[in-house]
Design a protein around this nucleic acid. Structure first.
Length: 554
RNA sequence: GUCCCCGUAGCUCAGAGGAUAGAGCGCGGGACUUCUAAUCCCGGCGUCGCAGGUUCGAAUCCUGCCGGGGACACCA
């Protein structure tokens, strides 16, 4: 069942087809464009049909538009039709017809804007930070944005699984183990190396991990000089770090359905199967002692190594095996959110999956771009290599979860963003999060007063009382909400919700200052109560999607 | 050098091929005896980076150029 707002669009489109028929023009419904106006005052829905018919019908666009309007059938939901500008036809949806949406929302708050299950399964993989250190700010962006996308797709009727891919095998875990060994040695009183080995981070948190390890393992001193112990030490530390990441994400309001271990994939020999399949498809060749994949056959810039000269696999092999595994689990859509450092990985991943016979459209790869933190207008240093990176935990210590999540979701994911720490902490007009939350708090406050005074209001709801421009604007905002959700889901654009929320909050605040509720006559009071109840529902549902709370008091 | 993203108001950014390109912030005025002033109202002279092209119509699509950011390992 389409939302009322969408229903209006479809009926207008059908009406246009009827008008076309009376002008002896055949046109398929899907080819008739009915779009939102670009500007206020141009109605609720607009068609450009007249421009597109200049070759099939004699006359100028305004003339054709006028004839179409004339033959447009009477529809109860169309209040007004206007031929405007150089040939547009603007349609106003009848406010009374539209006001049904208020009752609909109030009768089913949780279901409002939610499309019934459409039977499609989505696997969304995001964050997937290496378990070799704490989460950093850009992981927070991925977490907030990815979680919102998951909520958005759920609202749009998809069945969504959130997954975190844990790189708990391979070289970086061995390096972590080596760092552990160095730190354990430090515990025995040895000096730290003057130059750390290539790829081994001198990070402080490893010292804490080493202490914890020593405290729980009696034989630890024997491992210090044992190179073969690095993988095990690394795996131990990686699991601790992974568990910390899970906790931090939970604090950030993000939970995963599955933490998928790369090690389990390797243990099951899935990467071997990928290489064998590529071999059997004759897509590998030898060069300089390594096995290369012919990725240029699949649109990549250059071929690349899959089996190193030492016999080990490069990163792409287990990752490809992981994606094969995902598809085998039967998902209709597989979506990856990759970090900014994976930019170059994208074309390789697409190439190898194409090589393995998967259609390009089924795998969507989105890039989460980097985050620059600003304090006092100046960038805060956050280079992971320099060791001065800002962690997600540090960010959460400074900024509350609600504004942090809002800020991350507000911007499209594929462009670098500045995160203004000062602004995020401001609890004033400059901060859009509180602006929207404040609208919710005001509604709660009115509803509490109302329910205390009129627990049993005998007055029936009469939408005819809602005639003020701001009331009608709010009815439209409520009615549009399901369409906003569906469109944002299709576009993978949760940021659209932030814009919607700001708009409905703006209309509400203006309404609030201009009109009263409790002092009005019973019938008007009742109508406005129904209106703001529905506004609160639409607002809360949209806030739910971006993972930001709606406090009852502020 | 190749590939990806981005150039729109002083700043941060919206913009579904359409009408006179919009918001917020900042700045200047004004509004609470009232259901929350974390609010509202008024104030906008922009080469939509540049040049071509497609189109009845381009900030939007295509090509080239200029500027900014990022990615281009037998690391993950």
């Amino acid at each position: 069942m389409d939302s009322l707002w969408e229903q209006a669009r479809l009926e207008i489109r059908a009406g246009l087809q009827v008008a076309l028929t009376s002008l002896s023009v055949d046109m398929a419904l899907e080819r008739i464009e009915v779009t939102p106006p670009t500007e206020e005052g141009h109605g609720d829905w607009v068609t450009n049909l007249a421009f597109r018919l200049t070759k099939r019908l004699a006359g100028s666009p305004p003339n054709i538009a006028a004839r179409l309007a004339e033959h447009f059938p009477q529809l109860p939901l169309v209040q007004r039709i206007e031929v405007a500008g150089p040939g547009f036809i603007n349609f106003w949806v009848d406010s009374q017809w539209l006001a049904q949406v208020l009752v609909e929302a109030v009768n089913n708050p949780q279901g409002f804007g939610r499309r019934p299950p459409i039977g499609e399964r989505v696997l969304l993989e995001f964050v997937s930070a290496n378990p070799t250190g704490p989460l950093v700010v850009v992981n927070g962006r991925a977490a907030a944005w990815g979680d919102s996308l998951a909520r958005l797709l759920t609202m749009a009727g998809y069945s969504v699984d959130r997954e975190f891919y844990v790189n708990d095998a391979g070289m970086q875990v061995v390096k972590l183990g080596q760092a552990m060994a160095i730190r354990l040695d430090e515990l025995r009183g040895s000096p730290l190396p003057e130059v750390w080995p290539e790829g081994v981070y001198p990070a402080e948190y490893v010292r804490d991990l080493a202490q914890a390890y020593a405290a729980s393992h009696s034989q630890w001193e024997a491992l210090v000089e044992d190179v073969t112990a690095w993988p095990e030490l690394g795996a131990w530390a990686a699991e601790i770090l992974r568990a910390q990441q899970e906790k931090e994400l939970e604090r950030f309001g993000v939970r995963f359905d599955r933490w998928f271990s790369e090690k389990s994939l390797r243990d099951a020999k899935r990467p071997d199967a990928v290489v064998q399949q590529l071999e059997s498809l004759d897509l590998l060749y030898d060069q300089e002692g390594a096995r290369w994949f012919r990725s240029t056959q699949f649109g990549d810039q250059k071929d690349y190594v899959v089996v190193k000269s030492d016999g080990g696999y490069t990163y792409i092999v287990p990752d490809a095996a992981y994606h094969v595994e995902k598809f085998q689990r039967g998902y209709d859509h597989v979506i990856d959110l990759l970090g900014p450092d994976h930019h170059g990985h994208l074309s390789r991943m697409r190439a190898i999956m194409a090589g393995l016979g998967y259609r390009a459209e089924t795998l969507e790869i989105l890039i989460i771009q980097m985050v620059r933190l600003l304090r006092g207008g100046q960038p805060v240093k956050m280079s992971k290599r320099g060791g001065t990176f800002v962690t997600l935990a540090e960010l959460m210590d400074e900024v509350e979860v609600d504004p942090a999540r809002w800020f991350f979701v507000e911007r499209s994911s594929d462009t670098p963003m500045d995160f203004d720490l000062d602004l995020a902490q401001l609890k004033t007009q400059e901060n859009p999060v509180y602006y929207v939350q404040y609208a919710g708090a005001r509604i709660h406050s009115i509803l509490q007063t109302y329910e205390a005074r009129f627990a049993e209001d005998p007055e029936p709801f009469d939408s005819l009382k809602l005639v003020e421009p701001l009331e009608q604007a709010l009815i439209r905002d409520v009615a549009k909400m399901p369409s906003v959700i569906l469109r944002a889901a299709e576009q993978r654009a949760p940021q659209a919700l932030c814009r919607y929320l700001t708009e409905i909050a703006t209309h509400f605040h203006a309404f609030y200052r201009q009109h009263r509720i409790m002092e009005e006559a019973p019938s008007l009071r009742r109508a406005r109560i129904e209106l703001i109840r529905a506004v609160l529902i639409a607002l809360s549902q949209a806030m739910e999607v971006i993972g930001v709370s709606v406090p009852e008091r502020m």
